[in-house]
Amino acid sequence: MTDRRRINGPPSGTRPPVFAAGADRPAVRPVRQRQPTELRKLFLKTGLIPSASGSAYLEFEPSASLAAARATPTSLIPPSSALKLTCTVHGPKPLPRSAAYSPNLVLTTHVKYAPFAARQRKGHIRDASERDLGVHLETALRGAIIAERWPKSALEITVTILEAEDDRWYGDAPDAHDASWGMMNVLAGCITAASAAIADARIDCLDLVAGGVAAMVYAEEEEEKGGEEPRGRKLMLDTDPAEHRSIGSACVVAYMPARDEITELWLKGDSGGSHEGLIDGAVDAARGAHGVLAEAVREGLSVTN
């Protein structure tokens, strides 16, 4: 008779947790080692989930500080995180009988963080930010999909975020109240992955729509090394929010290069009148992601055909 009143320990031995005082080694804020216009590399792969009509997996290359921390760990807390997400596309499938007639493809998008995705644990019910991301993603894709080719059909796009971008460095987190900048990177990743998954599902689109992020970053005094903008904002493409102490404004675009069109634009924060530069930066970032996107879609096609 096994003891069912308690949660039994593992069959083999383990070690009890050690709560070490880490005060002697203060945590160091990661520093951006990329050029302002240098993007993080992407890994994108389509067709991973056989049960879905289309699917994609996307991850950002870990930033230099994160890679270094992983190689030689000095703390159990990773200094930053790198986006990892999966996207599944189900459909086009017929609308249920009960649904009203629709001459266009009915697009529904769900964005869900895995409970372990962020440093703060996420619940199983979608919260406001997740619903917000879903709406943004839908806007971005609606402009790209040729919806009237699929009347009376539904398309369901589900994005599961396995590892989210940090909103800010975890050391700053307790006393920071500014916007959640990580959401912007997550949205950009969602757009790129969803576009790949839609292409994998063979749904007609105007173009592959790629997401890109740019941000106006307030320069840190000690690390400013002769930038053009004296003691002020600086445009950074593909920002990792953990690497910056203060982000003034950020912008996400969903961009279709072939038509030179923006389907989704999300600008957050105070850019001080330089919106255009911010948008252009985001478009540049999207253009970079588009190259990977096109390559991944082509690779997916060559595998299946």
């Binding site: 792969k45 997996y57 390559e295």
Partner: peptide
């Protein structure tokens, strides 16, 4: 630029 943007998959991937 296109080739350069491709990252190799992480261990997880």
């Amino acid at each position: 630029p296109v080739v350069n943007m491709m990252a190799s998959p992480s261990t997880f991937a």
